[in-house]
């Protein structure tokens, strides 16, 4: 494991924990897209089914369990515990427009036509676009709380670091996985506009306003 992969994982973990703590501490999930969080729970569930079939390392298993656990805890907080604060009226992205095409693509373009492999591919494709309901919600309300922007920053940073990890692995190990790389590039590009606003306008402000 190289340093980019490790910092990518830690950045991903930071994002997940930041969101969970924000909701827990403020007793509110205002401004958070429950739909994006359901998609992420779906991503982790379909990708980490190999927890049941193979053991890779203690690190790998631990992180997967934490990611899955946190994803479902977040969904629980949004849709059950703090349901009253959930901003459903602004969370109107049609997720079937993501899940159905992504599911179809996973069937058509994969490494091997087997159930686990198709689910893994599905999770890779779905993850690349799972943040869209959240970005859509922010563009609709026109603003995001600072802590939410930190969450998005770490989530975007994670995939950007993975891209550097894959460049590193290509040069030093001759390794590359086209499905992961293409989806990873798409995922990172979706955050670019946000990164720009985060860096140029986020400093010293309590809220990030996104021009619609």
């Amino acid at each position: 494991m190289n340093i980019f992969r490790l910092t990518g994982d830690l950045s991903h973990l930071a994002a997940i924990i930041i969101l969970l703590l924000k909701i827990w501490k403020t007793r509110s999930c205002a401004g958070i897209s429950g739909k994006s969080q359901i998609l992420f729970a779906l991503v982790f569930t379909s990708r980490y089914l190999d927890l049941l079939t193979s053991f890779i390392s203690l690190y790998n298993t631990t992180m997967k369990v934490i990611y899955i656990g946190c994803a479902y805890a977040t969904v629980y907080l949004i849709y059950a515990k703090f349901k009253a604060t959930y901003d459903g009226n602004h969370d109107t992205f049609r997720v079937e427009f993501l899940v159905v095409p992504v599911g179809g693509l996973a069937f058509l373009v994969n490494h091997d036509f087997s159930p686990l492999e198709i689910l893994w591919t599905f999770s890779i494709y779905l993850e690349s676009v799972a943040i869209l309901p959240q970005l859509f919600m922010i563009s609709k309300t026109g603003e995001a709380e600072t802590i939410t922007t930190h969450y998005l920053f770490f989530l975007g940073l994670y995939r950007a670091l993975y891209l550097i990890n894959w460049i590193w692995r290509f040069y030093f190990e001759g390794f590359f996985d086209m499905i992961a790389i293409v989806a990873g590039v798409v995922q990172t590009i979706l955050y670019c506009d946000f990164f720009y606003l985060y860096v140029t306008k986020g400093e010293g402000r309590s809220q990030l306003s996104i021009p619609t």
């Binding site: 992969r5 994982d9 991903h12 190999d50 193979s54 890779i56 390392s57 790998n60 992180m63 997967k64 990611y67 490494h111 091997d112 087997s114 492999e117 893994w120 591919t121 993975y162 990890n165 692995r169 190990e173 390794f175 996985d177 499905i179 992961a180």
Partner: peptide
């Protein structure tokens, strides 16, 4: 099939 090398990633 995707290699074990990519499956090792999260």
């Amino acid at each position: 099939e995707a290699t074990d090398s990519i499956k090792d990633e999260l």
